[in-house]
Every structure is written in C-alpha cells, then in structure tokens.
C-alpha cells in the first residue's frame, strides 16, 4: 500500500494540472490573506467571520472548485490502470484493498500537503493556524477524493470519468449548497449525505463527513474486489 500511495503521491505532483491547481491555491491564499483587511471593510461580517477573514479566499476556492480540482486529478486514478492493463501487474502482487487504499492515501496526502502549505502561508498574515477550519477543509477533501475514487472504480473508461468528473465538479457545490439550505422536505433529507450541510453547521458534526467518505470507500472496495482485469 505504501509503494502504491507513494507512487500516486509523486505522480500527482508531476502533472501540469496539479502544478496549476497548487498555484491557484497558493496565490489565492496569499492575496486573499494579504488583502483581507480591505475585504473586511467592504462587506458586513460577524465577529467570528472577521476572526477568520484571512482564510475566506482559500475556503471559497475549495468549497466551489475543490471537487472540480479533485476530479481533475483523480478521476482516472483506478480506471486508467485497468484501461492500460497495468492493473494486472498490481493485482497479481498485492491485495485489491491495498491498491485502492494506496491510491486513496496518495491522493489524500497530496491534498493534505497542498492545503497545509496554503494554511501555513495564510498564517504568515493572520499570525495563527486555525486547526478547526483546517480540519473542516481536510474533511471536505477526504469526501471529494473518496467520491473521485468511487467514480473511478464504478466507471471503467477514463474518458467518461473525465466528462463526469467535470460535471460533478461543477454541480456538486451548487447542488450541495442548495440541498444543505433548502426547506423543501422532499429534497432536504438528502442534506445528510452532503458534506456542505455539516460544514454549514459549523460544529464538530463535520466529523461525519469522514464517515461518509468511509462509506464511499467501502462501496468502492466492494465493487473493486469483484472487478476483472
């Protein structure tokens, strides 16, 4: 699992897409933190929101484009190996669970490292490191990576997951926010499956997001164990 995770982690850093995404995260973090005082004067904010004003830019990017970024990098994490038949080398050497969790771990550490650097950059201006918000963001990323891995297991063709990834990446934050905030009783029960609901709650309920991610990984593992290569 470590070998697969390490390979996934390193390969993610090597792609042009990942360099662009890291650049977006860092530039957004840097400038939104640097000019957060201007932003604070421009809009009406609560005391709590004022306290976290430095992270607003990064949170905006991750909430609205996070799923798109994750899908962009990990939509073919599993099915590319199946499509190119390199999966045959992997499944004859190690367990399918280790392959799946290795892939997940590689992607997770990539996002963990990228978000950590962004938060450290913000902390230069805010002079504090907000572990609570950082944990919330990591929970959201964990959910998004799990969704990308599940999609990559369920859909065998990378070209289709690329299309679906863009679609889900664009729709997820819109639908997620709507489901989390709507009063429509026919729809609102879905909020329990949306990570945005737990983030809006702004308490430790966000830990449930890790459970949702775990459920998706369990589903991915069940399907992956039955796959033939």
């Amino acid at each position: 699992m470590i070998a697969i995770g390490k390979r996934e982690f390193i390969s993610m850093f090597k792609s042009i897409k990942s360099i662009i995404i890291i650049a977006i995260l860092l530039i957004t973090s840097y400038y939104s933190a640097k000019y957060s005082e201007i932003l604070a004067t421009a809009i009406a904010l609560t005391e709590k929101e004022m306290a976290n004003i430095h992270t607003v830019g990064l949170l905006f990017v991750l909430m609205f484009f996070g799923q798109l970024f994750v899908m962009g990098l990990s939509h073919d994490s599993i099915n590319k190996e199946s499509h190119e038949r390199t999966m045959r080398f992997l499944v004859t050497r190690t367990s399918r669970l280790r392959i799946l969790f290795g892939k997940f771990a590689g992607a997770w550490f990539f996002w963990f490292a990228s978000i950590l650097v962004s938060f450290l950059l913000i902390s230069i201006f805010s002079l504090k490191f907000d572990f609570f918000i950082f944990s919330q963001v990591i929970a959201l990323s964990t959910f998004q990576i799990s969704l990308a891995i599940l999609m990559s297991v369920v859909v065998p063709k990378p070209s289709i997951t690329m299309f679906l990834g863009i679609l889900i990446g664009l729709l997820a934050p819109i639908l997620g926010a709507w489901i989390a905030l709507t009063d429509n009783t026919w729809i609102s029960w879905l909020k329990f499956a949306s990570p945005y609901y737990y983030l809006v709650e702004d308490n430790y309920l966000f830990l449930i997001i890790f459970c949702l991610a775990g459920l998706m990984l369990a589903a991915a593992a069940t399907i992956f164990n039955r796959r033939e290569f």
């Binding site: 070998a3 190119e84 390199t86 080398f89 050497r93």
Partner: peptide, 30 residues
C-alpha cells in the same frame, strides 16, 4: 502473492518508468 511471479499476456508496462524503477516498484509491491 509474494511467492508467485506473473507475466500476464497483453500487458502494457508503466511507460513513464525506467526498467530499473519498474523492477524496484513491482518488487516492493510483493
């Protein structure tokens, strides 16, 4: 699995790796 070696048919190797890296990576998986 660590006691068996397999050369599957129709397989493509990891094109981005060198032969040496290939062997090191696949061996570590075993």
């Amino acid at each position: 699995k660590k006691h068996i070696g397999v050369m599957p048919d129709y397989s493509t190797l990891f094109n981005s790796m060198s032969a040496m890296k290939h062997l090191k990576f696949l061996s570590s998986l075993s």
